[in-house]
Amino acid sequence: MPRFPRSLLAAVLLMFAAVACAGPDPDQTGQQAAPAGVTVNTSPEQHRVRAEKVDAIAALVPQAVRDRGKLVVGTTGTAGPPLSFRADDDTTVIGVEPDVAQLVADVLGLELRLEPTSWENLFLSVESGQYDAGFSNVTVTEERKDKYDFATYRVDTVSFEVRKDSQIQQIAEPKDVAGLTISVSSGTNQEEILLGWDEQNRAAGLAPVNFRYYQSTGDYYLALDSGRIDAYLGPNPTLAYHVAVGGTTKIVGSVSGGGDITADIAAMTRKDNGLVRALNEALNTVIQNGRYAEVLGRWNLGSEAVPTSEINPPGLPRKPAS
């Protein structure tokens, strides 16, 4: 499938912004259908946006990595579309995370080698040096900065998704979730935000949130479709994609992944291994030349773009010792 022309990218952006959209078309092999005939390519043949090598930045890469000629990048492959997920062949990992990693590898003059792995093993493998970097919707935190270096490339946003026919029109502040049944993934930033909001509501004498936890994204959506939950709080990219291709839900509010604190998504490397500056400069190169915008536009994440990549910005604060 050819790269999206600018006119089609514009149509895709309009499609994702709308909540009225058609369901999947079984006749569209390798595509997920959306309104007005616009489709999302979910086939293994992604024809990714590519960038040119920049010799001065490539020279910043540690010699061992240059000698290998490959940038080994870990990603979960299970974060869900459009982040990092399996194509229609159930093998090829596609999404915005692999696409950004590809741009960085191109600028560094390296072949990209993606390594799908679990969330837990991603951190262990970057720390051990098995992977050069992790690109998997990783949020910068002060605790993680003890072991890893970061080069930012997106802002972290979480959103509330409800059924299209829901009476809920907006969730913007704690009082808006009082008394609702909401599902959220355990151990995530979004759970921490919702727990904080619920605590504020209880202190103010408002009805508590009824928390519901499920094992997979599919389970969350079955619960939402059946009316067992009022809303689902999750990563904005995943929810925006589901709204666009599913056609049965809508987003009614978004907040920073850090709650009241700005949160950043970043490429992660082992602490002080000498690679983070090369990643940072490669990211700033593709931000400046427009390739980065093409990738984010392809996956409807233009709203999460950063004007510049930063190394080790302030992260989410440490959790108090129990």
Rank of each mutant, 00 (worst) to 15 (best):
I287H: 09
D27P: 12
A231F: 03
Q28T: 08
G227T: 06
S216E: 04
P26S: 11
R270I: 09
D165I: 11
D55R: 13
A282L: 11
Q288R: 15
S136L: 06
Q190R: 10
L206R: 07
G290K: 04
P208L: 00
A10G: 12
N210D: 14
S136F: 08
G77W: 00
P307S: 09
V54W: 03
F16Y: 14
V12S: 00
T157H: 08
V255H: 04
E127I: 12
D90R: 03
P320C: 00
G74H: 09
F16D: 01
K164F: 12
N201E: 11
G234N: 11
G290M: 01
L279Y: 01
G196H: 10
Y220V: 10
L83K: 03
G227L: 14
G247K: 13
L14P: 07
D99Q: 01
D106A: 02
K319H: 13
S216N: 12
S303H: 06
V54K: 11
E161Y: 11
H47A: 07
E97C: 05
E304W: 10
G30K: 08
G315V: 07
V126R: 04
Q63E: 15
S322G: 04
I171M: 12
T78K: 01
Y148M: 13
G23H: 13
N121L: 05
S256I: 13
G302Q: 04
P116F: 02
A204G: 07
E161P: 06
E127R: 02
Q31V: 13
D264Y: 15
F123R: 07
Q46K: 14
D176S: 10
W197G: 07
A17T: 00
E310L: 15
Q46D: 14
Q190V: 14
L316E: 05
T181C: 06
N273Q: 02
D225G: 02
I251Y: 02
P237A: 09
L316R: 00
G95Q: 02
E161N: 13
P5H: 05
A36E: 09
R6L: 15
G259I: 15
I182R: 04
V184L: 02
T39M: 03
D146T: 15
D230P: 05
S125D: 01
W119A: 03
D99A: 15
Y131S: 01
A10V: 14
T188M: 00
D88E: 07
F123T: 13
N280T: 01
A59P: 06
D106W: 02
